[in-house]
């Protein structure tokens, strides 16, 4: 951390007391459905985006509003099918081809957190993300519906899986906000969505006069592409890495 120019490296003498055990990268549930569903997930999201792109350009508000329930269900299914919920013991390696003992037993233990995750996303993160979008330059006096729906999609892609996996522990969320969680496909997807939203703003000022340069099409595409890219990169390429700023 001491790579600042002109300064002698100072050894970090007193590491901060860690009240929280170092978070480990999230592992997927170990059954063939999870694996399949987890890999189908980005494909479905991206093909959905590609299929509805023209409608999105024509009528962003209507298209985004109609797509939102679909995304909610998709994200709930993803959490339900692929991810270990809060407090659940890390999945034990099992023989993939052996049928799980009693799938119906933990149905409730997985469905309820999935439902709660989506509920928290809608009530907590979407309003917060709306504010963040405004802070980062989204129009305030016009296009409110556009921005709210953009925040909704950003929130839906970035947060339910975090709620599902990490629960409501403020300390974990502080770690998530300060980029201190280890990268995995859950966190990668969240970061990817946020970064994608930021990069999605790049083409707007160009003088190409295309319909799709209108708010919020490019940002939304950035969110989706970023989320899927982040999920794949975080889940496979850089799994377990940690972001260090200095």
């Amino acid at each position: 951390m001491s790579s600042t120019p002109g300064i002698k490296p100072i050894p970090a003498s007193k590491p901060a007391p860690t009240p929280l055990p170092q978070a480990k990268p999230t592992e997927l549930l170990h059954d063939q459905y999870s694996f399949l569903a987890a890999n189908l997930h980005p494909v479905i999201l991206l093909s959905g985006l590609a299929l509805s792109f023209n409608r999105l350009v024509q009528d962003p508000v209507m298209t985004l509003a109609r797509a939102a329930p679909v995304v909610i269900i998709l994200q709930a299914l993803y959490c339900f099918l692929c991810l270990p919920s809060t407090g659940q013991a890390p999945p034990q390696p099992k023989n993939k081809w052996k049928k799980q003992a009693k799938p119906s037993q933990d149905f409730g233990a997985r469905a309820v957190p999935a439902f709660l995750s989506l509920l928290l996303t809608i009530t907590l993160t979407i309003p917060a993300l709306f504010l963040v979008l405004i802070f980062f330059g989204a129009p305030l006096t016009t296009h409110q519906a556009h921005t709210i729906l953009l925040a909704a999609h950003l929130g839906l892609l970035a947060t339910p899986q975090l709620f599902y996996v990490h629960g409501l522990d403020v300390r974990v969320w502080m770690q998530a906000a300060s980029l201190q969680l280890p990268l995995d496909e859950v966190y990668g997807m969240s970061l990817g969505a946020v970064l994608g939203a930021w990069f999605g703003a790049v083409p707007i000022p160009l003088d190409w006069d295309r319909e799709w340069q209108r708010w919020p099409v490019t940002v939304l595409v950035g969110v989706y592409v970023g989320a899927c890219l982040g999920k794949v990169v975080g889940g496979y390429l850089v799994k377990g890495w940690r972001v260090k700023l200095n």
């Binding site: 980062f136 330059g137 930021w198």
Partner: peptide, 18 residues
């Protein structure tokens, strides 16, 4: 207008980490 808020956010994240 695009880079400045990102840098501000990075500064906040760095402050949290530190």
């Amino acid at each position: 207008y695009w880079t400045t808020p990102a840098w501000l956010a990075l500064l906040a994240v760095r402050s949290l980490q530190q």
